[in-house]
Design a protein around this nucleic acid. Structure first.
Lengths: 158, 158
DNA sequence: GGAGATTGGTTCAATGATTAGACTTATTTC
DNA sequence: GAAATAAGTCTAATCATTGAACCAATCTCC
């Protein structure tokens, strides 16, 4: 059967996975963050089958992550650009990049993130803005917010 | 045909997706971070088919993200606990949680991350440790590191 | 302006993966 | 010792993904 339906689960992570919980989808967004906009550019960059790319782009447009628009006035050729919602996925990709740099067995990190104005490498870390501490030094717990959804939905809350 | 093979692509994001680029996998890790360890606990929490859970857990153990060990000395029942490598996926899930809180159309964030010693809510943001600026204030670029892989592999670098 | 290449798809059959549900075996609990 | 629980495996059906072929616009270049 088809993939599990996650969009009704009352969990922000499940909701996010319902949109980008597919390897191709996140690779498309990665490329889009680097400025790729055209169908064939994605296809060549990712070596993704045309039909798969076609459905993924449609889904991302439907979810408001990409905006499809004609390359020129009245042109039938499209470009796909990230919306604000799509650009906000940057931290997800940064986190994946860092995990891969640390744990994938590559000889060296293939790319380095830099400040594009100064070309200085970035050293990105999750920090709690309240206490100033880094995430890795904090014992993280969670509080379940019971005010937001029905009791039935709560059973699916995480 | 089976899912695209990403493990040979010279990109840390693709390498990460090769391990966790599946919705079930990340939901399993989410639960594991909250302390879930047993097969049936995962199954009930996620409503995941047994066979699917079985293969996912095996794959995660093979990748060194989870460690499988007997519940007691000599017991045939297993518990699955995150390794260091697995716990390091925390930032990926934090990023997804925040994106879902912002962009999924839920009435309110279902959970709040807190410091478990003080119960204070956390306000986690990516910060560049060098300049002290927040990620969202930085124009991010990338530098491709050409010293690490062969020219042939470089064509697949992102 | 016409030939050929490029772009942006759709359609097709074959192959895998995912699923619900039945089944199994060992271990607890009562 | 009976029933319930835990941790899976097995099977058939269904669904998604894939490579390949096909197609209609559009663009380039002579």
């Amino acid at each position: 059967m088809r993939r599990a339906a996650l969009d009704s689960v009352n969990c922000s992570i499940a909701q996010t996975l319902d949109v980008v919980g597919d390897p191709w989808t996140l690779l498309i967004i990665r490329d889009a963050l680097w400025g790729v906009t055209r169908f064939d550019e994605f296809r060549r960059s990712l070596a993704i089958p045309r039909a798969t790319l076609s459905t993924r782009l449609r889904d991302l447009v439907d979810h408001g992550v990409l905006e499809q628009r004609p390359v020129d006035e009245g042109s039938s050729r499209s470009e796909y650009v990230l919306t604000r919602k799509g650009r906000d996925l940057g931290p997800v990709l940064v986190a994946m990049l860092q995990w891969g740099d640390t744990w994938a067995e590559l000889p060296a990190p293939p790319i380095t993130l830099v400040d594009s104005t100064t070309d200085e490498p970035l050293d990105l870390t999750y920090v709690d803005q309240t206490s100033g501490r880094r995430l890795r030094d904090i014992p993280v717990g969670r509080r379940v917010n019971t005010n937001s959804a029905s009791a039935a939905e709560q059973s699916a809350t995480r």
